[in-house]
């Protein structure tokens, strides 16, 4: 049993601008815990989380793999989320490296096929297309959930970069909801890149049907 990261240093004020861990966060933690032994065995050198928000998930991966055993990079467009991620790392004694950026932009050149564990709990809620774009530009809490058409606007951009980012042994954990068309995501990633896609966990929570998809070469 891996303890849920300590988030007691974060306050109501933080959660006005940064997504507070909820069911979608916890299903990702559960999926990672389910794979804990494999994650330890693969000895990942680089773990990269896109949109860490509070830093809860990266911190959890750090407790699975070991604080000094990997580099924990996390990219968030929201600068407040970067600060929360850093504080969560300090609180849980995992050295998390937040980078204030849109997706993996500034890392793409150097992390070509070098990411061993890629994590993304995206803004998956279906909204008007404009709402998702505006939310990313606003770089505040709406950017953590507003997903545009089918809730896939931001996820689609990352899906196109996974082949460039993932190392030969790498695995990508993606959170999705039913409206995102999970079978469609899997078919596309298999057909276009030859990836292996598996739904490793799914559950209904608070009106959402949540999935964790594990994508690997």
């Amino acid at each position: 049993m891996i303890p849920t990261p300590d988030l007691s240093h974060l306050a109501r004020e933080d959660y006005q601008h940064v997504y507070e861990p909820a069911e979608d966060t916890f299903i990702l933690l559960d999926a990672l815990e389910q794979d804990a032994e494999e994650l330890q065995k693969m000895k990942p050198s680089i773990c990269l989380e896109i949109g860490p928000g509070s830093g809860c998930v990266s911190s959890f991966v750090g407790s699975i793999v070991g604080a000094s055993a990997s580099l924990y990079l996390s990219c968030d467009i929201n600068s407040r989320a970067c600060h929360c991620t850093k504080r969560t790392g300090d609180q849980n004694k995992i050295p998390l490296e937040p980078i204030n950026s849109s997706l993996a932009g500034p890392l793409a050149l150097r992390l070509r096929r070098a990411v061993d564990v890629l994590l993304f709990n995206p803004p998956y809620v279906p909204t008007h297309a404009n709402e998702a774009g505006d939310a990313q530009c606003g770089a505040d809490i709406a950017g953590s959930w507003a997903g545009g058409a089918d809730g896939m606007q931001v996820t689609n951009v990352l899906l196109e970069q996974v082949d460039e980012l993932l190392s030969p042994v790498g695995r990508f954990y993606l959170v999705a909801v039913k409206q995102n068309d999970v079978p469609g995501i899997c078919q596309r990633m298999t057909r276009e890149y030859g990836f292996r896609c598996e739904v490793t966990l799914q559950r209904r929570a608070g009106g959402e049907h949540l999935f964790v998809i594990r994508i690997s070469r």
Binding site: L73, E97, I99, G105, P106, L107, A108, L109, R110, L111
Partner: peptide
């Protein structure tokens, strides 16, 4: 915290800046 391990992985990604953009 920008440690040198992270600095070693960051490159300029501005539009059109594709050579000599690292380190």
């Amino acid at each position: 915290m920008v440690r040198l391990i992270t600095h070693n992985l960051l490159a300029c990604h501005a539009k059109g800046c594709t050579s000599n953009n690292f380190p």
